[in-house]
Design a binder for these strands. Sequence first.
DNA 1: CGCAGGTGGCAG
DNA 2: CATCGCTGCCACCTGCG
Length: 1112
Amino acid sequence: MVLTSSSAQDWSIDDSEVGRLLNSLSGRKGGEEVKEEAREGVRGEPSEEDKEEAHEEDYSSTDVDESVIAGSQIEVPSSQVDVPSSQIEDSPPIKTASQAAPGTSFFKTSGATDEWGSMNNSEFIAFVNRLGSTNSQFKKPQSSYMATQKDIQPPSPEELTDDDEAEVPKPPTSMLTTSSFGFNTSDERDIFNQLEKERGKGSEGDNSLDNHQDSQAAAKNADPDILATSTANPTTPFPVATLPPPSLPPMDVGSQELEFGDYETYFRNKQLKQQNQDEEYVDFVSKARNVSYPKIFKDCVIYVNGKTHPDISQLHKMIILHGGRFLAYLGAKGNATHIIAENLTPRKRIEFRNYKVVKPEWIVQSIEAGKILPWGDFMLINMDYGQKKLEFRRAAESKEVEVSKAEAKQVEDDNAPPLSPPSQLSQFTDPEEPLETSPEDEVADDYGHLTAKDPLFLDKFFAKSRLHHLSSWKMDLRSKFLQRAVETLRARRSEKPKTTQQKVVIHVDFDCFFATVSALKHDPPLDINKYPLCVTHGSSGSDVASCNYVARSKGCKNGMWLGQARKLCPNLICLPYNFDAYENISQQFYGILLSLDLDSILPVSVDEALLDVTSLCETEEPIAIMTSIRSNVFEKTGCSVSCGCGSNVLLAKLALRRAKPDGIYTVDDADILSFTANLKFRDLPGIGYSINAKLEKELHVKNMAIDRLRELSQSKLISLFGVKTGTTIYEYARGIDHTSIDILEDPEKFTRKSLSIDVNWGIRFDDDLQVEDFLSRLSQVMVKRLIETGMVGSSLTLKLAMRHPDAPIEPAKFLGMGDCLFVSKSSKFGISTREAGMISSELKYLWRILGEDAKELRGVSITMNKLVQEGKKEDINQLKLPWKADKQVQGKEENNSPIIKRLRVSPKKVPAVHLPASSPQLVPQPVPQPPPLLERDQINWDVFKELPMEIQLEIKQELRRRELQSTPRKRRIINRQQNDIGIMLESPTKRRILNREVTITEKLIDSRARLRFQGIPITKFDTIKEKLLEWMDCTIDDSNGPLEVDIEMFNDLMLKLLDVGELLKYLDILNMMEIRLDVRKDRQGYDKWHRIMDQLKDIFGELSSKDIEFLF
DNA sequence: CGCAGGTGGCAG
DNA sequence: CATCGCTGCCACCTGCG
Ligand SMILES: Nc1ccn([C@H]2C[C@H](O)[C@@H](COP(=O)(O)OP(=O)(O)OP(=O)(O)O)O2)c(=O)n1
């Protein structure tokens, strides 16, 4: 028996990305041996991306003890070792691997039989339903685990840590090749790696050889005169002075040999000469002085911009002597790893924002330290996570300045060669760059054990993650207090009829909780009021979790990076986390709260709670209550809490802010207006960075105070922020807040609705296999947490953080996520579940359908939605997939019999699953069904469930494929032959759109994965538009206009928009750029740009009216 | 119109 | 050596029937 999916012939298109995915989805045959083929389809094909690998930095580490010496000694900021720098290895922004290897199909051409694919739907269903009985090999003894050991009783911890796939019986032949198999021994891993290498060897070797030859050839062509220059003065005491100026104007010597306008080639040659020269110089110096300098800048490619101190030639010398590469010309390919500069013009600020721009001191101090220091400490522009937005704003502002003052641009430093066109759009990795791809993938990455590749990563990570602790503590407390409240519900309800009397709310919160507790538990305890303290893990790139008020007086804040905090407060003392102590003290704190007779306690956080003391205030003053809490807590824990009191949550929160540190404050209703008048808009709860920025932008006001805010009408606020947010703000400005803190009022509101696991640190993967392994591990954690909370869920979301195409490969924060684009996709199980296998299969499916590159992955988040208490009745309407429970499966589902029974829905009543929006009630509508629709409910899900997870996955994917196939396509492809657009614009898109078949296969990939511009998915349309405007601004002053290659990519984007029927987006871009161009008629590049626009307008004009009608 | 999926934002 | 950037919920937007 062979399970077979559709064969390559169905999908003979030239689109490797689609193809790669397709192969992984359906290009399989045979229940087990198929895996090898599939894997080959995914990974066997050598691609450009496969060669990308971060290069590890060689450095000699000098350990500096970070820990605080007991007593009052103030820690001196220690110099830190940098994050290992990596080559900038941007993958092509528009991922068309087919460009790299046209005609090299990813599809198997081996005669994969087409049994599965050729079946019609009913045959397929019958086939699946037969599986259970006719294919006994799928019912290995262990396969009953699902119904027995796992389902009857909760799994043991050991069980939970098993790989979910490993629990499934599986013939040994699948071991090396199943997509989700977790290697059990290093032997297996080795074998697998070896296999992988052998598969990829052929063409990868060829490629690197080509590169090598290219650069050698280029080196040979290098100008012998210049080479001679450096060797001709071997005795010069200051040899670098003999080097030619590192950057030359475009039409310098030698340029006459080149074709007109071929600056790119010219500069590339120039760079190669430079490199050669540098090598000779280093060689010479080392020999002459008989010393060799530590190669601390190995793998760094450094460009120096503008006037610096030390000057450019000194820096040049320092860089190359210490193993770095000096870049005379900042090329198109984003090949510099660092840029040295002391100050930047606004223009350069924009152009360099994707680089690591550091001050010259970075070079000097690194050399002094004998090791590469973290560049984050020498950042000229803060552009990383959390600060990027600020930078964007600044960039935008400076751009506007630039518009008004054309001449300001001319004042730019002249040292730098022209670099605007390439740096704007082209981000391709230069194929001639000496990437030194290491043959040993794993070896090049020797902090791999710190990343999520490590099977033990999750445990280690969560154990040390403060935010994880905060979140889990909070949810634990919430559920604990919810339960408590519900238990006392019956008793309370009768005796206390709801009154609408004025409430009294107290907000109580520890002062700088982590810092206080860590200081207290320090040996010996540190005086929290004497030294500037903070709690943090590491050094410069580490977050400050909490800092005390001494540090805050210097400007330090929670959540700030340590590097920044140290700048503000050089003698800041760092304390380690002490999660156990936090939890302990929190318990005592809540114990005290519970001992009071309060109407309600709502835990806000581990150190913070909202108290409804309305009843208590009938006999006691709020101030007395607060004072008592404070003294009580201090007595028991040694920590100070502050309290704020008001007639609602808002006022209590604002009062608390006023009370801190170590105090109390009460807002009288009569004083609301005066109390809030001087607070700032940003201070209101729910107003964060973005909302504040939006207000400031729209109203051109900074730091708006509440009394000014009150001048804005409610409708104005609603138009700015939406109905809900606008109204809330309007009310908050007046001290009005309807938020209820009474759990009993609506217990449903406080029950958990989702459960998610987010990991956005340490995510570095080489390939899909590693990602899938990680997803398996995530599923197990998910199951564990679901069991802990006693819930099951029926919907799953996978959210990915992908490195922003403009962000450096490695961000400033070690193994951090940097700036990212997010994509998410969700799917339904059709039944509430908690099975690791189901979850992990689904996650892997979602991962594949999102079609992202594993190497670019920087964060993963999975969310279980539509949660219900295990064993409770489910809302049947939420479950779209009926479950034929003819023969009751033994095990868990028996306990859950209500679910199963409810799932016994007559198949006829349920529409085909490919219409997820329709609910069973809507069925009667007599819609003429397209005949061959797949009825998912015809599948015998009992049989299905008995199958090993691998097979389930296969079938699910096939089902999906069929559903997608049977969904009628709404948008037709424009007939290119009629319009002849392709002749006008030769581009990869042309080839793709001429091939109509592509649209069929594309359905298998999430549509968003298909259409990208510069790596930015089309869903981030505004980002794309910004980028285009930026591009125009950067090239409008060049009479040559933008680079051809960029124009081509731009045209490519526009054609794709037409192709997918996004006429409005097409026109939007056209319109936007026209407007911008209109106010730049006097610029050098106007004519060129005008032609580009005209061409695009022509294209649109040439669409037949029929096409347009259809597309709209 | 309501609904669902996707995205963004916020708090600690 | 770095470093441990989680997590739940609300609101908004868009596209669909
Ligand atoms: N970005 C943040 C914010 C908070 N926390 C942790 C450390 C804090 O000690 C604890 C409580 O947060 P608070 O906002 O209550 O801040 P503090 O208690 O530190 O200071 P205060 O409440 O006095 O302002 O949560 C964190 O790790 N990271």
